[in-house]
Computed example of a mutant assay.
Amino acid sequence: MPPEESTVVNDYDRLADTYTVRSDTEIQNAYYERPAVLALAGDVAGRRILDAGCGAGPLTVSLRERGAEVSGFDLSSSMLEIARRRLGPDVDLRVADVAEPLPYADNAFDDVVASLVLHYLEDWGPALGEFHRVLKPGGRLIVVVDHPFAIHLSQRQAGHQTDYPATYQWTEDWEAGGRALPMSFWNRPLHAMTDAFTAAGFRISAISEPKPVPEAEKLFPEDYRMLCVSPSFLFFVLHAG
């Protein structure tokens, strides 16, 4: 759907319980996205990490279990309530908007993880600028977004006349409590992503298109085969200049 036609508000407060179950158990997040992020992060023991758009906190939990000092923020207070139950009162979790100035000091973190967050934004510039600000010099930003060509193909197959080189908004319905809730995202080509990273002062260290972890093959054989030949996410490791 073109941006001028969209009135969608992504309501994660209403989706919190449903989305948490999906994220904890289904292949896309539990056996594909999070394992790949953790593999790219490597040894995080002793590192201070900000989980941007942490949601219910599954990645935050995994990073802390590996020895990181974690903080997280999300726009949804309902998602953060779940995260607080998982992480306890000693973890710094805040309600904040990735599109606005962040409530953290300059040079506060060794790493920022922004997994499946930036695709909610039309303009990446302010968010990337804030990530750069809160990172220590040379700090890492790990980003996961919808794979732009996968979205392009799905939109064309659905009958939408999208162009891969364009940046455009698209929507789909998610189910919660027996009701369909419209969700809205922005798709942009790879070169627009890399241009935005460079403009914000980041150096690209890695671009990854990993497969799901092997144990997913028995649990989700059809989805596993699909993701092995047609990745749905794109992963970046960036360093602050």
Rank of each mutant, 00 (worst) to 15 (best):
A196C: 10
E209C: 03
S205K: 02
F185Y: 12
F185L: 11
H152S: 01
P165C: 08
I151W: 00
D146I: 00
T162V: 15
A158D: 01
L181I: 14
T162S: 05
S205H: 09
F185E: 08
A158V: 03
I204K: 06
L153A: 12
S154W: 15
Y164D: 02
S154Q: 15
R179D: 04
M193Y: 04
A196N: 07
G159F: 15
R179P: 02
I204R: 04
E175N: 11
F197Q: 07
A199K: 12
W170L: 03
L153E: 01
E209Q: 14
L190R: 12
R203M: 09
A192T: 09
I204F: 06
G201M: 10
P182R: 05
R156F: 11
D173V: 08
T162W: 01
I151H: 00
R203A: 14
A206P: 10
L190M: 12
E172V: 10
A200D: 05
A176P: 06
T171N: 11
D146H: 09
A180S: 10
G201F: 15
T198K: 09
V145M: 09
L190V: 11
R156V: 15
E172S: 09
Y164K: 09
D163M: 10
V145F: 01
L190N: 06
V145A: 12
P165G: 07
L153H: 07
S154G: 14
H160T: 05
H147M: 08
I204Y: 04
H160P: 00
E175T: 13
P165S: 11
E209I: 01
T167L: 01
A192I: 01
D195V: 05
G201T: 08
L181F: 14
A158M: 06
E175M: 13
T162M: 09
A180C: 02
S184A: 15
A150E: 08
Q161Y: 05
W170A: 01
T162Q: 06
I204N: 10
A196M: 04
A166Q: 12
T162E: 08
G201K: 13
G201R: 10
D173R: 02
W170F: 15
F185S: 08
A200Y: 04
A166V: 03
T162N: 00
A176G: 07
L153S: 02
Q155E: 07
L190A: 11
F197M: 11
F202K: 08
F197N: 10
D163E: 07
E175C: 05
A166H: 14
I207N: 08
I207W: 14
S208H: 15
A199V: 07
I207M: 14
A150C: 06
Y168V: 09
H152N: 02
M193A: 12
F149D: 00
T171Q: 07
F149Y: 11
Y168I: 13
T162G: 00
A200C: 05
N187I: 00
L181S: 01
I204D: 07
S154N: 13
T194F: 05
I151C: 01
Q157L: 15
F202I: 01
D163G: 11
Q169N: 14
P182Y: 03
E175S: 13
L190I: 09
